[in-house]
């Protein structure tokens, strides 16, 4: 896995939290940090997301959106609220 979006396994049917609208409620299926617009390395991004409570099975809800391009977003992850940019939220696959 080199991280090249052309060769990595990207399932087009995946719903990514970074694409979801305000009011979205779902559950985290897995993290996939390979193809995001984040400046962090995939490994670092995944670690940070896990540290903030984004783990498989957690319930997520988009509570608020920023003014410009609806970014960043405030996400309820189980019982805490995390603010993050949509580019980082792309790593969170939800259903």
């Amino acid at each position: 896995m080199t991280g090249d979006p052309g060769t990595s396994q990207v399932n087009v049917q995946d719903t990514r939290l970074g694409h979801a609208d305000r009011g979205f409620v779902g559950k985290i299926i897995r993290l996939d940090a390979l193809v995001t617009g984040s400046s962090l390395s995939p490994q670092e991004l995944e670690q940070r997301l896990v540290e903030m409570g984004f783990v498989e099975g957690a319930r997520v809800e988009i509570l608020h959106e920023g003014t410009i391009r609806r970014d960043p977003i405030a996400v309820r992850v189980d019982n805490i609220t995390i603010a993050l940019r949509r580019s980082e939220a792309m790593a969170v696959i939800v259903e």
Binding site: S38, R48, M52, A74, T81, A83, L84
Partner: peptide, 13 residues
Amino acid sequence: DHAPAPFMLELPD
């Protein structure tokens, strides 16, 4: 050459 740093923080109650 550096992309913007991430913004990720807890919004406490």
